[in-house]
Computed example of a mutant assay.
Amino acid sequence: MPDSPLSSRTVLVTGATSGIGLETARLLAERGATVLLHGRTAEEARAAADRLVATAGIDAGQLCTYAADFTRLDEVESLAHKVVTEHPHLDVLVNNAGIAAPERHTVTADGNEIAFQVNFLAHYLLTCLLEPALTSAPGGRVVNVSSALHRTASIQWSDPNRSRSYSRLAAYAQSQLALTVFAADPRVTAVSVHPGACETALLPLYAHEGAPATEGAAHVVRLCDPAVEIVNGAYYDRDARVEPAPAATEDRTVRRLNRLAEVLVGRTA
């Protein structure tokens, strides 16, 4: 689609090996974008690219694959440095990778509750490190794939790992609230979006039935389009702009979350 506004755009999609991430990559590539597909391992990322070429007819030249396990922040750093080196001009970052919090309280090797790290802290670190490459030209942006469950959450400032009182649903919701708050960070132009309950690995958190992943992906891709004007920090429920949870747009909460995240990802002295 050479006349698409997304033609000649470069977009990094995290968690692009399945579900909404894979469908987002497909739709972007079909609209002419160069898509950087992130997977947990190089093998998973390569398999996703091969699948798009074989089943969707995507030009292999439009796809680049990258790997990083988001339970390891050193791998996130390596991913960012590689992307900046190979693609110094990045138009859109889609922070999509996510996991459901496990039944049992789990802490990563970096010392963080696993859902908080994979769903939020890894994306926080990646976004900060990619800032030099993220274009300031019109249309450049970050799209955080969040969740309506952020409305049920609170951030446990004194115990973000929830080591004293753990609930998998509360841990997941906290990670989604943090990701939604992060969209209001003034350093980059960003929005967050709840793509709806879709048939993905996260569906059990929401409902028994969900829409096809491609429907959720369409809401994400719409926000990647430079023709769609956005306001920094805006939150969308599918294709409708709505108010997020009150905490998500409070300047004090944004600053407090940044300070917490900087400590947890090891970016403070």
Results as ranks from 00 to 15, higher is better:
10 T>W: 00
14 T>Y: 05
16 A>Y: 07
19 G>C: 09
20 I>M: 03
20 I>Y: 01
21 G>D: 11
23 E>V: 08
26 R>G: 02
32 G>S: 09
34 T>E: 14
34 T>L: 11
34 T>A: 12
35 V>Y: 00
37 L>C: 08
38 H>L: 02
40 R>N: 08
42 A>S: 13
44 E>M: 11
44 E>H: 11
47 A>S: 13
48 A>H: 04
50 D>W: 00
54 A>I: 02
55 T>L: 07
56 A>I: 01
56 A>W: 00
56 A>N: 05
59 D>S: 13
59 D>C: 00
67 A>L: 03
71 T>G: 10
75 E>W: 04
76 V>W: 01
80 A>G: 10
86 E>P: 02
91 D>G: 09
92 V>C: 08
93 L>N: 13
94 V>E: 06
94 V>G: 06
96 N>C: 10
97 A>P: 12
97 A>D: 12
101 A>P: 08
117 Q>S: 04
122 A>T: 07
122 A>F: 08
123 H>C: 10
124 Y>V: 02
124 Y>E: 04
126 L>W: 06
128 C>H: 15
129 L>W: 00
130 L>W: 05
130 L>V: 04
131 E>H: 15
133 A>S: 15
135 T>F: 08
136 S>Y: 07
142 V>W: 03
144 N>R: 00
145 V>S: 04
145 V>D: 03
147 S>E: 07
148 A>E: 14
148 A>S: 12
149 L>I: 13
150 H>E: 11
150 H>P: 03
155 I>P: 00
161 N>G: 15
164 R>D: 15
169 L>N: 15
171 A>H: 06
173 A>R: 05
176 Q>A: 07
177 L>I: 07
177 L>P: 03
188 V>M: 14
190 A>I: 11
191 V>P: 00
193 V>L: 02
194 H>V: 02
196 G>V: 00
204 P>Y: 08
206 Y>G: 01
209 E>M: 04
211 A>Q: 14
215 E>Y: 13
217 A>M: 05
217 A>L: 11
218 A>Y: 03
219 H>M: 05
226 P>T: 05
227 A>L: 10
227 A>P: 00
231 V>T: 15
231 V>Q: 15
232 N>W: 08
232 N>F: 07
233 G>S: 03
234 A>I: 07
235 Y>P: 01
236 Y>A: 07
236 Y>C: 02
239 D>R: 13
240 A>F: 08
244 P>I: 09
247 A>S: 14
248 A>Q: 11
250 E>K: 12
252 R>F: 11
252 R>A: 15
256 R>N: 06
259 R>A: 15
261 A>C: 09
265 V>S: 06
266 G>C: 03
268 T>M: 03
